[in-house]
Design a protein around this nucleic acid. Sequence first.
DNA 1: CTGAAAGCGCTTACAG
DNA 2: CTGAAAGCGCTTACAG
Lengths: 365, 365
Amino acid sequence: MRGTRARGATADEAKQATGEACAAPRRTRRRRAAVTLNEVAAGAGVAPIAVSRALNNPASVSPALRSRIEQAVEQLGYVPNRMAGALASARTRVIPVIVPSLSNVVFVEVIEGIQEAVEAQGYQMLLGSTGYDLGHEAALAATLLGWAPPGMMVAGLRHETRTATLLRNAGIPIVEFMETGRAPIDMNVGLSHVRAGAAMAEHLLARGYRRIGFVGLRMKDDYRARQRYDGLRRQLAGKAAVVLFDREGGAGQGGGQQVGWDALPDLLAITPALDALFFANDEMAVGALLRARRDGTDVPGRIAIAGFNGLPIAALTTPTLTTIVSPRKQIGREAAAMLLARIAGREPTTRRLDVGFTLEAGGST
Amino acid sequence: MRGTRARGATADEAKQATGEACAAPRRTRRRRAAVTLNEVAAGAGVAPIAVSRALNNPASVSPALRSRIEQAVEQLGYVPNRMAGALASARTRVIPVIVPSLSNVVFVEVIEGIQEAVEAQGYQMLLGSTGYDLGHEAALAATLLGWAPPGMMVAGLRHETRTATLLRNAGIPIVEFMETGRAPIDMNVGLSHVRAGAAMAEHLLARGYRRIGFVGLRMKDDYRARQRYDGLRRQLAGKAAVVLFDREGGAGQGGGQQVGWDALPDLLAITPALDALFFANDEMAVGALLRARRDGTDVPGRIAIAGFNGLPIAALTTPTLTTIVSPRKQIGREAAAMLLARIAGREPTTRRLDVGFTLEAGGST
DNA sequence: CTGAAAGCGCTTACAG
DNA sequence: CTGAAAGCGCTTACAG
């Protein structure tokens, strides 16, 4: 009987086959000294459910009861157990957000946009960072789904198959944010990095540059940078020479600056014919600008420099840095708005939003 | 009766009528189609508890059972419900971390240190940001405690009384990280911002500066910057003149750069006798350096400039920026190590750790 | 508006 | 090593 028990035996069948009436002896298992809803109810002389209602939907309780309950809550220092509430209602107010990195300003600003929007609706953000590792992303997604969130947000449109399957089958709204380009699992907000690269190509061509280098940092992991390079390369095809430099190092916040700083003299020495460098991000570009400043290298006379992201510092360098501004905070806000709409049972204006970008031409090109 | 019911009329109402003595008719309330542990148990032909054990402590189950269970888990795509587990065990593996802001690199690096350490032990970080609002901090702390975390981390030693009370009474280990100086609620990791200010005072005195300005950004909120100013002021007392400038604006990432950029010409115009400026952070100092560069203002000839934090860019400017390096990642790691030790029932080496700082003298002073 | 009962999906505590 | 029972602290669904 043991091995073949099978299907129907939902062990949920807790038969209360006690000999007597039904009252089994109680064992207590409480480990925390925390005040419970039942204690508040006892304190206020009401039923537990009344406390629940007074807390979650005050209008559904008479003012008299409500004030008695509020007093008891206050006096006992009651803090509701969210896990119990979530388990009972099958609803959490925690929204997981998965990003590749926190040491990249870009994600931080998107996150801020998300947090503002989400908190305004009484939700909490649960942040996970993958370190640009899609395997880690899969593990994170699985764990986070265990909290039965009402929705989820994840950076990027590229995931391992199992991640996509997991998210698709979770039966909750999902927003993939950052780039556009392929069909999302559910909803998508971002910009086309391919088009951004192409836009920079047009700009550099228009200013007369014909021997252009793209400088990336660990491009293997950063596929959005690869997309920008692809856009650049295709747009330049037949019109200018392009070369890709993939640099290593520079982990952590501000690390990109050091990479740009180190790259500039290297590249100029090895490929002296270069007339323009498009860096994968503004941090690297700023590092290169600072290096040029220290070494007395003329920008853009000797070499033009451009970046990507539109960080505030781009407007403060001498010369100012040509860059592409991505509306990061907007991405966060829009992504959150879409998700919250769906969570609330409404249909967002659109499920796929391209927020675009702006090329800010500075003195560095 | 129909109109007032509302709420959650659900789908799968599998009624399992039982006709026994005490067994009341069962109502089912499942709302998600998610696979449960009971279903896995049924699938594997074992008791639910065996599944629980196979997942949480594989060694406690025979290999035969384990592989049957693992197969069922795999096949059904089972994702454990963390809320149920947490409720039953009164244990979560989520550690809340409260910081004032994410748009400040400094906190991001501390957070990274925390995340690395915490994830390595199988815990998850739940991030909350207060926007430098201690009222918001109190609300966040209360909500986060509702998840019955095994411990908690919060930036700073200053909180509203109710926050401190709440945390103290939570009966879990708490680490306050960032600054040292006063008695913590439980544990503390950080550095003395007063001493950091004093160290800069000594440096500026040694280099011959006697008319020194401290430039802060929204100092009302940033009490750590106030501490640095206090340290500076006291150390300079009787030896040099000090003046405090409290600037507004510059919200968000990189906003400080703009503030420094704007401040420099203002301050030089209004208080031309100044010979040195100590900025509350490197971002502002870098903004000022870039402005000096553009305007042709001699640094340090006309005005010396110093910052605080030790961001990588400080080494790349011309001249290089004098700054105080704070070991941010170390703060995060140490704070996490302390907390994890206590969670594991061990006593950390110390409950109060001063990680110190290093003054990096550059060409800007 | 108010409440008694049952159940959410797990784990603990006990027993074999 | 394995399992039956009870309970974690809430909320839903139903009834007055």
